[in-house]
């Protein structure tokens, strides 16, 4: 049917392209221009303001530290979880369903959940007190306890964001025919060798997607950090938010936004290069 009217597919796709163009490309160009201009002329003034701000160094460091701590743990956990359910016969769907519950919760709500656990009057302190391990309420989330604060935020992020990694990894694992692992087993590969030499190389595309998605999301971390640490734990998106709302300086906020985008793009390129996916070498 469409052979007579080859424009039909294009016409059907057009609205989505226009929609994305208007609501993504235009703001993107505007933001970049906002970041690298001052009163309508090109300028690095906003960048300079951003870099010389007292919280800039800390927010870059915190964002990278959090990403470096959270993403590898999430990948390892997702691989472990995916491998564990792969061995199950019954109840697999139920377990996956339970594991993906955090996906259905907004990140601010997730932050609140962990705040109710970790704050001074929270569940953690109640339990520790009940077990006689602490004498009085202990603060975990203040600027005086940076390590505890960091661990608390990291745990909350891991809890909230592992499910999406696991879904991608499980989908990847499902595409590896079991005969590959059986053949490897017959020819003498140990479980660990089967995992490293057969499974991991064969789920490269899933691994790559999961890493890119999760890393980009980790650089954009905000609501969980804000709920648990407020400004005690500055991160890049948090700073952008402050410049936008508290300081009403849209240009510096835009500079932060551009910086986050550049970091995300760089990370994506690194992954694309480091984990090459050659379609010829896939099942």
């Amino acid at each position: 049917m469409t052979q007579n009217r080859p424009w039909i597919p294009y016409a059907l796709i057009l609205p989505s392209v226009v929609f994305l163009g208007l609501l993504f490309v235009v703001p993107l160009v505007q933001t970049i221009w906002l970041a690298v201009s001052d009163n309508g002329t090109p300028s690095l003034a906003n960048m300079t303001t951003m870099v010389s701000d007292i919280n800039f160094g800390r927010s870059v460091l915190n964002t990278f530290l959090l990403t470096l701590a959270v993403v590898p743990i999430q990948i390892v956990m997702a691989l472990t979880m995916g491998s564990m359910v792969a061995k199950m016969n019954g109840g697999r769907e139920t377990i996956l369903w339970i594991w993906t519950i955090p996906l259905g919760i907004s990140d601010l709500a997730a932050g609140m959940v962990w705040l109710s656990i970790l704050q001074n009057t929270g569940y953690l302190n109640s339990i520790l007190f009940g077990m006689g391990l602490i004498e009085r309420q202990t603060a975990w989330l203040t600027y005086q306890t940076p390590v505890a604060l960091f661990i608390g935020i990291a745990i909350a992020e891991i809890w909230r964001g592992t499910a999406i990694v696991m879904i991608i990894i499980v989908a990847g694992l499902n595409q590896v025919p079991k005969e590959f692992k059986e053949a490897a087993e017959i020819f003498g590969a140990s479980p660990w060798t089967r995992f490293t030499r057969i499974t991991l190389p064969l789920i490269r595309p899933a691994l790559q997607s999961a890493l890119i998605l999760r890393t980009v999301l980790a650089f954009e971390v905000f609501a969980v950090v804000y709920a648990l640490g407020g400004r005690n734990f500055p991160v890049l998106v948090g700073e952008a938010y402050n410049w936008q709302n508290q300081n009403q300086n849209y240009s510096v906020a835009a500079a932060y936004a551009v910086l986050i985008m550049v970091i995300s793009l760089a990370a994506t390129l690194v992954y694309l290069k480091a984990i090459k996916v050659d379609p010829e070498r896939l099942p």
Partner: peptide, 11 residues
């Protein structure tokens, strides 16, 4: 063992 779908490692 030789498998029905060969199970030759693609990578």
């Amino acid at each position: 063992m030789v498998f029905q779908n060969y199970a030759v490692f693609p990578h």
